[in-house]
Design a binder for these strands. Structure first.
Length: 841
RNA sequence: GCCGGCGUGGUGGAACUGGCAGACACCCGGGACUUAAAAUCCCGUAUCCGCAAGGAUGUACGGGUUCGACCCCCGUCGCCGGCACCA
């Protein structure tokens, strides 16, 4: 019989669905295991070939755990709010609910086509009012606990679309949609005080099993720095408070810099002789876009205040105060002490303005560059700090500042509060009401969900307000507090809201009284293994950790970290059709003929398509036409082949290029498996026992370490080996169970054909016996002076002496050793013998 | 600039904790089967020399440690990702 994957896959998918065999059971007696993948944004394009990589990986883990006897929760859902759908609906004059419904239906059928063992009864959809009721509820708790507040801040504003854009929608300073200029515009925004959790978000990383690069990236993003705050007296009488990470260099502070927005400037205006110049500089700085302020002008500019000077607290000397836009208003205290000898930026600034540079840490040459090393330097020109190391000097100066009452240790973070409102329709309405008398008042919890009203148009209004603001009937309401007239908040939440807690809803998705019952939350506990993209490390992953900690603090969830383990997959890339080496031979030849040489042809491609023409492998994109559609692959080769190939393609954590031809190798492998298992041979072949046990161990271990590619390679090796004489029923039985998590459909079919009991995917995971893995003889390497010369076969239990004797008995070694004396031999058990000879005296 | 990762055949990639580099595949070449093609099967496939036996070279580059280095150390070059005037 032929391997008819289309019929087989349909048959088993229907049966799994009918029998609900992958359903998770709340409160089961079995040990629980919660495997999670990031739920997709159901775009109109359908599934991309990048999606199956993480899904297949964790499906393999989930299926293995089930076979190991766990009660597995492996859910799927849809993060369906968001701009692309909204824009699509606007453009095509469609209703958002319809578009979303259609997209979700398409994603669902595509996912089912791939044979994932999701529990389809637990699907969540962030746009479902039964779901966003609880998103809104969490927001209200944040508000009630003082962690949500509204403040005015600059936002991205597209001058042509007349609407607010998220940072992600601004590409190189222009609007992603229309290409027009994006400017900064002051708008009132809802903020979430994630900074209050900064320290815990760093500290608690120590207790979770996240891959290292995720931890590092989160730590860098939160950006903790320790140092001190110090008060400088000024000739105006006010104190200037600064933050520094290098209080040890206080003796080297030769000037001060404050941000152009600093509040003291207003106060000092009457004292400043050059107030016009100062104000002009501040006005110019305010007008600069972020792009201009950071990307372009790295060269230092500023204005020296004429009329107020500061006093260095250790030297007592008067030093000038500058304003400059290299000092940020939003970090630290908005002003700094400048130590040009030991800070690169201060050094640049001092060179531009001809300010004195004093060396206070010995080790470099401050005339040529700032010396910023904290490890090796010794304090000089620093009074009572002289001779100390940087580390000791920090301790001593902080104590001194404390004693004098002019400074104290301080920790600062780069992390900013989370801008939480969008002037858009397709998001969760913010359940707050503005009352002129009572201020912001929360909607009563019994009124949740606060539903999105139907609107005529989804477009943002001309003045940049959410389309909801035009719904007067919806907007005008009654204050829940005083009963007077009030207006609803018309901003909606960002896409990150619904995804910040969705993993909790999976535990109890149909609960009407709580986001999930306390029993369900306790039973399922932390997500045991969460895999997702690196691009979410400082967004979704950080946001959801923040929300979870908050929910823990108010007693909703019983543990403070949501995910026990976090891993991340690499992207699937495509061929660049504009790269010379990727062109069909005829086109290459034509180009070479046209431009005279290969070099010229390449140059032409770069001129035509830009620098990216040099890249052979690039991100898949519609405009390049290199997108691979997973359903096409399923049609041609079957879901099992796609699953296998996407796991075999390379290191799971690294980016890998899709190859249409390489897929065939996996199809061939499944054909071999089919032929091997279709009609097992009778009898025993003990020769295969060791490799069977070794493969069972290898595949099991590799799955745990995300080395899916080598797990598959090991099974290929086994099948090649078994294929030589044919496999018997016992071998087929083990092989099918081993392969089942990777290629579940074909294994179910062959399992049934062989008359084995039940579903293959519900069988116990195969076990191995370490003692049966060793062969009686082993081939070992024989080196002479560290160079491989030959191999010999020795019994596995051979002693070191026996191994050396066997090596010396080899003809080739005998030949080499003629006239030589063996001076040393190194033996690695069951691996090699290394012989060191020297000429006989 | 800072932080992180990486550099292995024609290609994707293997190699445990320092122990036979190139597993497993793709491509390619040769052969079998076929009227033919596809599919399938068998053989070969790091490079160089050699008919062969065999020998030499080889994990970006230059050094070092070691009986032994893709792996550890020092330096250089290149690529990818993130952050970017955060004091």
């Amino acid at each position: 019989m032929k391997y008819d994957f289309t019929a087989i896959e349909k048959k088993w998918q229907e049966r799994w669905e009918r029998e609900k065999c992958y359903a998770a059971v709340n409160g089961s007696e079995k040990p629980k295991y919660y495997a999670l993948v990031e739920f997709p944004y159901p775009s109109g394009d359908g599934l991309h070939v990048g999606h199956p990589r993480p899904y297949t990986a964790l499906d393999i883990v989930a299926r293995k755990r089930r076979m190991q006897g766990y009660n597995v929760l492996f859910p799927m859902g849809f993060d369906a709010f968001g701009l692309p759908t909204e824009n699509y609906a606007i453009k095509n004059h469609m209703h958002l609910h319809d578009v979303t419904k259609k997209n979700i239906a398409r994603f669902t059928s595509q996912l089912k086509m791939l044979g994932y063992s999701f529990d389809w009864d637990r699907v969540v959809d962030t746009t479902d009012p039964d779901y966003y009721k609880w998103t809104q509820w969490i927001f209200l708790q944040l508000f009630k606990n003082g962690l949500a507040y509204k403040t005015s801040m600059p936002v991205n504003w597209c001058t042509s679309c007349k609407c607010v854009l998220a940072n992600e929608e601004v590409v190189n300073g222009v609007c992603e949609r229309c290409g027009s200029e994006v400017i900064r515009r002051e708008k009132s925004q809802w903020m979430l005080a994630i900074t209050k959790y900064a320290q815990r978000l760093i500290d608690d990383l120590d207790g979770v099993d996240f891959i290292e690069r995720v931890k590092i990236q989160q730590k860098n993003w939160i950006g903790r720095s320790t140092g001190a705050e110090v008060d400088f007296d000024t000739t105006a009488g006010d104190k200037m408070r600064i933050f520094t990470t290098r209080p040890d260099t206080l003796f080297g502070a030769t000037y001060m810099v404050m941000s152009p927005e600093h509040a003291l400037l207003k106060k000092w205006a009457p004292l400043l002789k050059n107030i016009d110049e100062v104000e002009a500089y501040a006005a110019a700085a305010a007008k600069k876009s972020d792009f201009e302020r950071t990307e372009l002008a790295k060269e230092k500019t500023g204005v020296c205040l004429d009329g107020v000077r500061a006093v260095n607290p250790v030297t007592g000397g008067e030093i000038p105060i500058f304003i400059s836009d290299y000092v940020l208003a939003t970090y630290g205290t908005g002003c700094i002490m400048a130590v040009p000898g030991h800070d690169d930026r201060d050094w640049d600034f001092a060179k531009v303005f001809g300010l004195p540079i004093i060396e206070v840490v010995k080790g470099g040459n401050v005339e040529e560059a700032a010396f910023t090393d904290c490890e090796t330097g010794i304090m000089v020109n620093s009074g009572f700090l002289n001779g100390l190391s940087v580390e000791d000097a920090k301790v001593k100066i902080i104590q001194w500042l404390k004693d004098k009452g002019i400074g104290e240790p301080k920790v600062n973070f780069k992390l900013r509060d989370w801008v939480f409102s969008r002037q858009r329709y397709w998001g969760e309405p913010i359940p707050l009401v503005w009352c002129d008398k009572c201020g912001w008042v929360p909607v009563d919890e019994s009124e949740l969900p606060l539903r999105l009203p139907d609107v005529e148009s989804y477009e943002t209004t001309d003045d940049g307000e959410s389309p909801l603001s035009a719904m007067t009937e919806w907007v005008n309401t009654i204050c829940p507090h005083c009963g007077g007239p009030a207006r609803r908040e018309t901003d909606t939440m960002p896409q990150w809201a619904g995804s910040s807690w969705y993993f909790l809803r999976y535990m109890d998705p149909h609960n009407h009284d709580a986001l999930a019952s306390p029993e369900a939350l306790k039973y399922w506990g932390q997500v045991d293994w969460y895999n997702g993209g690196m691009e979410h490390t400082t967004l979704h992953l950080l946001y959801s950790r923040f929300w979870h900690k908050f929910l823990y603090d108010i007693g909703v969830v019983p543990y403070s970290e949501p995910y026990a383990k976090r891993t991340s997959h690499g992207m699937i890339l495509g061929m660049n059709p504009h790269n010379f080496d990727n062109l069909p031979e005829e086109e290459r030849n034509a180009l070479v003929a046209q431009y005279g040489s290969e070099k010229a042809a390449r140059k032409y491609l770069v001129e035509k398509y830009g620098e990216m023409a040099n890249q052979q492998i690039v991100k898949m994109s519609k405009s390049l036409g290199n997108v691979v559609n997973p359903t096409d692959v399923v049609d041609t080769y079957g879901a099992d082949t796609l699953r296998l190939y996407i796991m075999f393609i390379g290191d799971f954590e690294k980016a890998a290029p899709w190859s249409d031809t390489a897929v065939k190798g996996c199809k061939r492998f499944l054909d071999k498996v089919w032929n091997l298992c279709e009609a097992p041979k009778p009898g025993d072949r003990p020769a295969h026992e060791a490799s069977l046990h070794r493969t069972v161990k290898k595949v099991g271990d590799d799955i745990e370490e995300m080395k899916f590619n080598t797990a598959i390679a090991a099974m290929m090796t086994l099948v090649n080996e078994l294929g030589e004489g044919g496999a018997n029923r016992a071998e087929v039985n083990v092989l099918l169970r081993l392969l089942s998590p990777f290629a579940p459909h074909i294994c179910e079919e062959l399992w049934e054909m062989n008359g084995f009991e039940g579903l293959c995917s519900m069988q116990p995971w195969p076990e191995y016996d370490e003692s049966k893995m060793v062969e009686s003889e082993k081939q070992i390497a024989v080196q002479v002076g560290g160079k491989l010369k030959t191999t010999v076969v020795v019994p596995t239990d051979a002693t070191d002496e026996q191994m050396v004797a066997a090596a010396l008995a080899d003809e080739k070694i005998k030949h080499i050793g003629e006239g030589m004396e063996l001076v040393r031999s190194i033996v690695v058990k069951n691996k090699l013998v290394n012989l060191i000879f020297k000429p006989k005296a």
